[in-house]
Lab assay of single mutants.
Amino acid sequence: ATNIVGKVKWYNSTKNAGFIEQDNGGKDVFVHKSAVDAAGLHSLEEGQDVIFDLEEKQGKAYAVNLRIK
């Protein structure tokens, strides 16, 4: 899926990971530091509006192509 709108639920820069809550009510999506880095960002803030694509690896959904809304 592409161009999904959501809000950062939480992001821990020590653990280099967090979750994004989908505005469409879907399951929360894992976001890794690699996606944050690829977006040219240093970190994510709780409640921040984002747009992202979903990629599945080994049955788990990940946020990729992250951008700030």
Rank of each mutant, 00 (worst) to 15 (best):
G25I: 06
D53L: 02
I4W: 06
A1N: 13
D53R: 03
K60A: 07
Q22C: 13
K60T: 07
G59S: 06
K27I: 10
E46S: 15
S43F: 12
V5Q: 13
T14W: 13
N24G: 12
E45K: 14
L66Y: 00
N65A: 04
N24R: 10
A39E: 02
A39D: 01
V64H: 04
A39N: 03
I51R: 04
A61Q: 14
A35S: 09
Y62V: 07
Y62A: 06
K15W: 14
K69W: 11
L44N: 00
N65D: 02
K60N: 08
S34R: 11
V50E: 00
S43T: 14
L66T: 00
E56D: 08
G18K: 01
L44Q: 00
D49G: 14
G40L: 06
G25S: 07
G25E: 06
D37V: 15
K57G: 08
A61L: 14
Q48T: 10
T2E: 09
L54D: 00
K15V: 11
D23W: 13
D28H: 09
F19C: 11
K60Y: 11
S34A: 10
G40F: 06
D53K: 02
V5A: 13
K27S: 10
A1E: 09
L66A: 00
F30M: 07
Q58V: 08
V36I: 11
S13P: 14
G26V: 07
E56S: 10
V31N: 00
E21V: 13
V8L: 04
H32N: 10
A1M: 13
E55N: 08
K15D: 07
I68E: 04
K60C: 11
G59H: 05
V50G: 00
Y62M: 09
A35R: 03
N16G: 15
A38K: 11
A17C: 15
G6W: 02
A39G: 05
L44V: 03
G47T: 03
V5M: 13
D49E: 15
A39W: 03
S34D: 09
A63S: 02
V31L: 07
N16S: 11
L41Y: 10
T14N: 12
D28K: 09
Y11G: 01
A38D: 08
K60L: 10
V64E: 03
T2I: 13
K57S: 11
S13W: 11
N12S: 14
D53M: 03
E55I: 14
G47N: 06
D49W: 15
L66W: 00
F19I: 12
G25C: 08
H42Y: 12
A17N: 08
I20T: 00
E21D: 05
H32F: 08
Y62E: 06
V50P: 00
Q22M: 13
T14Y: 14
H32G: 10
F19H: 04
A1H: 13
E56R: 13
F30A: 05
W10C: 10
H42G: 11
L41N: 02
S43Q: 11
